[in-house]
Every structure is written in structure tokens, then in C-alpha cells.
Write a protein that binds this DNA or RNA. Structure first.
Lengths: 115, 115
DNA sequence: CGTTCATATGTTTATGTATTCATATGATAG
DNA sequence: CTATCATATGAATACATAAACATATGAACG
């Protein structure tokens, strides 16, 4: 039997290992928060709190190029945080889900209660 | 007076500009979510859901070097998501705030309701 | 159909950052 | 005060990614 040296946690570690959710779920969760973790995307999402907006309205509002906004809208759409509808040439984006609001509001609470 | 060309949103943009919270707040919010947006940090936080743990227990549990864990614990601590206490040579880390649980749970809900 | 407007996408570049490796701190025991 | 254990930190490297730029798609209109 192996000598027990130093700080030994094997029992605790074994137990917790059984309790932790799959790595995959935790990874998905991190990936979700990563989407919120960018100022441009956060500003876009916040813009859409009020109402749906077309791409060029968002560009003007945030003072950024249409390309930059389009790229980020794609990320948001791929992750089901926004959706869009077409009206002629114009495409309107809107929040896909009420969870988006809740997640952001929860984060906001953390910040404000901290100061 | 300037000719009105193309798609014009100036009125809408002006209005929304007044409604958007400061850039600073939105940036802070993105920075907060950025912390959750890393698999290692997410795994650490999840480990601490059960109970406080010392650094080397976390390292063993996640199968990562002590250094990597220490670096990430520093990020988490600087952002007030975890706190620690000393007991001799050992330092125990724990969740700093119940918001941490809530934010993660909210994200988890979004993921599960989606599939 | 060819032009124009709204949006999307591919590529490049610059910046941020997670991990590793080496080393430092700091507490305890002897 | 020296050795050892737990943890922290500094520097280097490797990888991810946001924005810019150029170009492509795709709808409407004459």
C-alpha cells in the first residue's frame, strides 16, 4: 500500500468527482457566459431590451461598423440569444428568450450590491 | 438642411441613446460575465458549490497544476466571486456570494430549456 | 437584368489571456 | 534558523478572438 504523504485529499476528491456534473455541461455553461462577456455583445443585447432593431440602427446607436455588428449578431444568433425576421431588405433582430434579460439582470444585481 | 438619404434612424437612435445605461456599467457587466466564461473557472466555482476547498484539493479534483488553479483563483478573488481563509499553511476558498450560485443556475436553465 | 441598398462573410491583424515553468512567499515543525 | 509544505507570482508561450477591410449575397425597383 502506498505511503500517505503530505496533504491527502483522495477521499474528498473521489466523492466530489461523483457529484460534479459532466465536464461537457460545465463547458457549455462557460461558453454561454463567454457570449455575455464582451462589451459589444452586451451593448447590442441591451439595445434590444427596448425593442427590435435592424442592423444599421444598431451600428449607428453603438457607433460601430456594420461589419463588426453583423459578426457579433451572428455569434448571438448562433447561440440562440437573439433571433431575426426579414422585412424586405431590412432584417430586424430581437432578444430570443426571456432568459437573456434574467441573466443580465442577475449580473447587474451582483454588481450593484457590491459597491 | 441635409438631405435625408437611405435608411434613417437618427430619431430612434437619439432616443435609445438616452435610455442606454452608461458605457461603463455595460462594460463592468461584460467583465463580470467574462469571468464565468472560462471552463476552468466554471469548474472551480462548481467545485465550491458543495463546500470550501483548499487549493491543492481543487487541483487534484480538476486534474490541473497548482499554479493554473492559483492563477484562476486570483482572478475569481479579485472579482469578489470567491473569498478565502487561512488555516495554518492551508488556504481554503469558498464562494463569496449567493449571487454566484444564482447567476450560474440561471445560465444552466437557459441551456436545459433550449434542447 | 442591372443598380442600389441592407446585410453577411472571408481574411488578416492586433490584442487578450490561459497555461506552463521557474521562482518567491509565508507558515510550521524540529 | 533551516527545511519543508502550501500557495502565490512573474515571465514566456501558445491560442483564441474582436475589429477592420474587402467582397459577396440577396431583395426591391425601375
Amino acid at each position: 500500500m502506498p505511503e500517505k504523504k503530505k496533504h491527502d485529499h483522495s477521499a474528498l476528491v473521489d466523492m466530489l468527482h461523483r457529484e460534479l456534473p459532466d465536464e461537457e455541461h460545465l463547458c457549455d455553461l462557460a461558453d454561454l457566459f463567454k457570449i455575455f462577456g464582451d462589451t459589444t455583445r452586451m451593448r447590442i443585447l441591451y439595445s434590444l431590451f427596448e425593442s427590435e432593431l435592424c442592423v444599421c440602427a444598431i451600428s449607428e446607436l453603438l457607433g460601430m461598423t456594420q461589419s463588426a455588428i453583423s459578426h457579433q449578431l451572428r455569434v448571438l444568433k448562433d447561440n440562440h440569444l437573439v433571433a431575426n425576421r426579414r422585412e424586405g431588405k431590412t432584417i430586424y433582430y430581437f432578444l430570443a428568450d426571456d432568459h437573456v434579460r434574467k441573466i443580465i439582470e442577475q449580473g447587474y444585481e451582483h454588481l450593484t450590491e457590491e459597491e
